[in-house]
Computed example of a mutant assay.
Amino acid sequence: MKTWWQTKFPKGQQNLIINDIDGYPVQIAYGEKGTGRPLMLLHGLGSWSYNWRNSIDTLSAYCRVICFDAKGFGFSEKPIARREKNGHQLIELERIIKELCDQPPIIVAESLGALVALALAAKNPELIGRLVVINAPVFTDKLPHWAMGILAQTPIEIIQSIDALRLPFLFAPLVREIMGIERRKVLFDPSILTEEDVYWITYPFIELPGTLVKVAEDLQLAAKEIENLQANQPNMLTHIQNNLHKLECPTLILWGDQDSWFPAIHGEKLHRYLPNSQLKILNNCYHDASTGAAQVVNTAILEFLQDTGYI
């Protein structure tokens, strides 16, 4: 059976080596399709490149689409022996852009990926040509899902033991069933998520050791950030919010009108913070917009790029 990479990208899965925040080399999996200006697709927490399956063909007709798995997710390397440090995603995204792009790319980013993209656009504006953010957790004050809370509170040693024993693999049918149920809850039309989709969405958790640990580590970092935010202690969320006014890059904000994780009023607030932004509310759309509203998302992205003279 062909892998998803082989069916979607002309060269299949490609690999890139970058140094992470600690200076250690890590392998990043990516695929690319099309020619022209580089357009990078960033997934959210607990997801991987497969989440962009419905956008790659459409966008690659106009751009050189680059779709990569963030460190520890999907098919990218998972440094099990080292604990993650706060802000690692920002450093890693910066290094991936510098390695793969010969000009400032268009960044299209969803959920946590959108938060990281906003942080990078404020810190290094010269690295990003255009920005599209979808359902970004920039004003959140809690973890949005019960399972996230459990993973954030569970000692990492327990998660490591579960992973080492390959329990997700041993109970694969149950893992697929539970994750399929939960992923359908963030879609306006749950029926569009096929069994093949569930297979690939859950594949890294079941087949690739280290995925569950990586998700738990990032969730624990996120929970600590929210705790610091609520206690008025230094935190990256406040830092990002306070620097949004510096972001001059033309930005399109897309937001699901029925996103129960991060409500649409957050999108309206972000629009007010960003001086050079457009806001489009996606009708009948929950949190997973790249799956649940792919056609509308793709059209909005292309119209924005055309309107701002980028394609």
Rank of each mutant, 00 (worst) to 15 (best):
G44C: 05
G31C: 09
M40E: 03
N19C: 05
R82T: 08
K33L: 09
N51K: 10
G34N: 03
G34E: 03
I17L: 00
L39T: 06
G44Q: 04
L42P: 02
V26P: 03
G34P: 08
A70I: 06
G36N: 12
H43D: 04
A61N: 11
S47V: 10
Y50C: 02
W48V: 01
Y50E: 01
D22N: 15
I28N: 00
M40I: 15
R37V: 14
W48M: 02
S49R: 10
L39V: 00
Y30A: 03
G31W: 13
D22T: 14
L59V: 02
S55P: 03
F75R: 11
G44A: 10
Y24E: 14
P79D: 12
G46C: 09
E32C: 05
W48D: 02
G23V: 08
G23I: 07
L16P: 01
R37N: 14
V65L: 10
A29S: 13
S55E: 14
G46F: 10
E32M: 05
L41H: 06
R83F: 04
W52E: 02
R37G: 00
R64L: 09
D69M: 08
P79R: 14
S60V: 06
N51Y: 12
G36C: 11
W52T: 03
P25W: 02
Y24F: 07
F73Q: 05
A29K: 04
I17F: 00
F73A: 01
G74I: 10
P25L: 04
F75S: 13
L59R: 08
D57T: 03
I17A: 00
M40T: 09
R83M: 10
I56A: 03
L41C: 09
L59N: 12
Y30K: 04
P79C: 08
R82I: 03
I80C: 06
R82K: 13
F73H: 13
W48K: 11
G44T: 06
D57F: 01
G31E: 05
Y24P: 02
D22A: 13
D69N: 07
N19L: 14
I56T: 06
I28Y: 00
C67V: 13
G74A: 04
A81L: 12
M40P: 05
G36M: 11
R37T: 14
A61T: 14
R64G: 09
G36W: 08
G44K: 09
Q27W: 00
G23C: 07
R64D: 11
A29N: 05
P25T: 06
S76F: 02
A81N: 12
G74M: 08
I18G: 04
S55I: 07
I66K: 05
I21W: 00
G31R: 11
D22V: 12
E32H: 04
T58N: 12
Y30S: 03
D20N: 15
G36R: 09
W52L: 00
D69Q: 10
A61F: 07
I18T: 08
L59P: 05
G72Q: 08
I80A: 09
A29F: 10
R37A: 10
D57I: 04
S76A: 07
L41P: 03
E84L: 15
D22C: 12
L16A: 05
